[in-house]
């Protein structure tokens, strides 16, 4: 059973990248893989769900990372540093 066009039009759909929030960033987090122990704390506390952790390492999605710096501050191994975008 499909919805009518009028109802469909007022619904918003789940979208990765509702906005390209990476453009808001003044500083970018840069991960030093040699210090990273893959503990996942950066992933856990990222407000923007912009951190991926796998066995291959930590990857930050710069399309959406807003550069808040929580990951760098919370990293127990000081493996993340904030670098100016300018």
């Amino acid at each position: 059973m499909s919805r009518s066009a009028g109802v469909e039009k007022i619904l918003a759909r789940p979208t990765v990248g509702a906005v390209l929030s990476g453009g808001w960033r003044a500083e970018r987090p840069v991960v030093d893989a040699s210090k990273c122990k893959l503990c996942g704390v950066c992933w856990l506390f990222c407000p923007d769900a912009a951190v991926e952790v796998s066995e291959a390492g930590v990857v930050i999605d710069y399309d959406f990372c807003k550069g808040c710096g929580i990951c760098a501050r919370e990293c127990p191994f000081k493996a993340i540093t904030m670098v100016s975008e300018r």
């Binding site: 109802v7 619904l11 918003a12 759909r13 789940p14």
Partner: peptide, 10 residues
């Protein structure tokens, strides 16, 4: 409009 199996925002 809303159903958990087909998530949308109203």
């Amino acid at each position: 409009p809303l159903a958990a199996e087909d998530p949308a925002s109203l």
